[in-house]
Design a protein around this nucleic acid. Structure first.
Ligand code: ZN
Ligand code: ZN
Ligand code: ZN
Ligand code: ZN
Lengths: 142, 142
DNA sequence: TGCCACACGTTATAGCATAACGCAATTGAT
DNA sequence: ATCAATTGCGTTATGCTATAACGTGTGGCA
């Protein structure tokens, strides 16, 4: 059994940003987060970006490249790979509804495997892989 | 045999942008393209973005979401799915070297299939899928 | 001829992200 | 305890990415 990364102690700003993302139903841009936190003393984008950098590093927040926005990690203890916020080697993938902005976070080991094989066959050393599916969620497609 | 999409007639601006991307070794941002085309009369970002929109629609150019940049499509006649600029149903994937900025365009039918299965199982209707692997190419990893 | 669709040019503005500075709090030796 | 190194923080300014809104010109076509 692999010890999951222990939840690091968050600073005040990191906590505020993380809580804001968790309260939100969907992804938020850094500037949207900033606006939500003005009442808590936030004045400048860097306060948000610095917190987001750390939270992303901790695996507690993901950046959605196709949206220039951020979401709280949706992994829960019951997930297949165990451990909150521990994505291990696995690549996280996202399905993003363009109608209701819902984001479904998942990972697919088969996809990981095939992309890993491709990389190995080309001698390419991956550092970060982005998989984002834009489309319509079940409700919105109906 | 499936008739590939015929290469559409390009306007002057579209041709200039496409040629600039083809001449470039790697991806370019819209503003970099703008700078390269100032001598050809380009003055404003919209001239570039409008051309890029069309070229992307034609499948002749791809946007790299994780870079906010654009590359000319690297598919050639000899590729597996036949037909230049005809990606059919397949999702295009990119491996991006963070050292030399080389971009390798490929597609992996198995990956497509697995992501398609996932979507079907969730009732999600994909419209566009982004797959980008950041890392080091064979030469730069050595 | 009048209409429509489309490419184009221009100006202005919106939205996303980081550089560079200085200060304060924390940590971890010595 | 003290010094040095690290880290977080706040602020100002700047840079990069993308689109809104307006008007012009042109070619196809009823
Ligand atoms: Zn996650
Ligand atoms: Zn939806
Ligand atoms: Zn292509
Ligand atoms: Zn390289």
């Amino acid at each position: 059994m692999n010890a999951p990364i222990v939840n690091p102690a968050l600073t005040k700003n990191q906590t505020l940003v993380f809580d804001a993302l968790n309260r939100a139903e969907g992804p938020m841009s850094a500037y949207t987060i900033l606006d939500k936190l003005r009442d808590h003393g936030f004045r400048a984008p860097l306060q948000v970006y610095r917190a987001l950098d750390k939270l992303t590093e901790f695996g507690m927040v993901h950046r959605l490249e196709s949206l220039n926005a951020f979401v709280a990690c949706a992994h829960r203890e019951s997930e297949c790979c165990g451990g909150s916020h521990n994505h291990g080697q696995g690549t996280v993938a996202f399905a993003i509804c363009e109608s209701c902005n819902q984001v479904i976070e998942f990972h697919d080991h088969e996809v990981d495997h095939h992309l890993g094989d491709w990389a190995k066959s080309k001698g390419f050393k991956p550092s970060k892989t982005t998989i984002e599916i834009r489309g319509l969620c079940e409700k919105c497609a109906a």
